[in-house]
Amino acid sequence: MTFVYAATIAILAGAGIYMILAQNVVRIVMGVALLAASANVLIFLSGRLGSVSPPIIPEGTDVLAQTAANPLPQALVLTAIVIGFALTAFGVALVYKAYRSLGTLDASAMHDAEDMGSPFTPSQAKQ
């Protein structure tokens, strides 16, 4: 299964990168979400898979069974999922605000900052 998961992670990452390279800022945010998902699965996989029993200590024993799944990457991924969600949600808010103020979703058309501080004329920055 390792090869299957590795391929899944790779395609998720590749698709995320492809979306990030788009001109539309909504696609960029969505690409970030895919890339985050890919990273989560990667961390999960790096703790080694194979067990199907959750890392919960059963009643009557004091220590986690050797056959249980690895809890460490799960704890890392759990917070990573929430943080990734906060990041993409923030990105969506930013995109929406940008569209409201600039009237475009085209990343290459968003260059107010460059126009302001660019050493070149705005026409050069726009090319």
Binding site: T2, I9, A10
Partner: peptide, 12 residues
């Protein structure tokens, strides 16, 4: 993606 694929395999 291809680089990621190989990196994941080498980690595993």
């Amino acid at each position: 993606g291809a680089a990621i694929f190989l990196v994941v395999l080498s980690i595993a």
